[in-house]
Amino acid sequence: MASQVFEHALNKVSKDSKIFAEKSLDILDQINFLMREEGWTQKDLSKKLGKSESEISKWLSGLHNMTLKTVSKLEAVFNRDILITPIKAKQRYSSIKFVPVKTVVFKSVAHFEEKRLDREFTYNKAS
């Protein structure tokens, strides 16, 4: 049976606590994504930052109240964004002129069959 004490307490949690927890984990997800991309362990990251492993471990745990300075150090080491504001994101992504997407336009049933099947296959044109 679910804890009534927990449920009651959770219902009273402030909005800023919820936001803090959500953003803390969003940041952890992003950092771990970047570490996986680079193939870095926490040990590697601590060396690149010139910090002890235990300090990095503290940074990268649940609810560490990460300062903007800390985030900046991490972004500098990864050379990638960890935090980005909506305004910045809009500016950055609105400058993209096009996104390559492969599309196929079917003019007729016959045309569809030609695209779908091997080139050597002969087809009957639909009327």
Binding site: F6, A21, E22, L25
Partner: peptide
């Protein structure tokens, strides 16, 4: 409150190893 919120967040995302110090 922060800890309770964290429990709820982890509950919705999964208990990834790297969330735990």
């Amino acid at each position: 409150s922060d800890i309770l919120s964290l429990i709820a967040q982890i509950g919705e995302r999964g208990a990834q190893d790297y969330y735990f110090n």
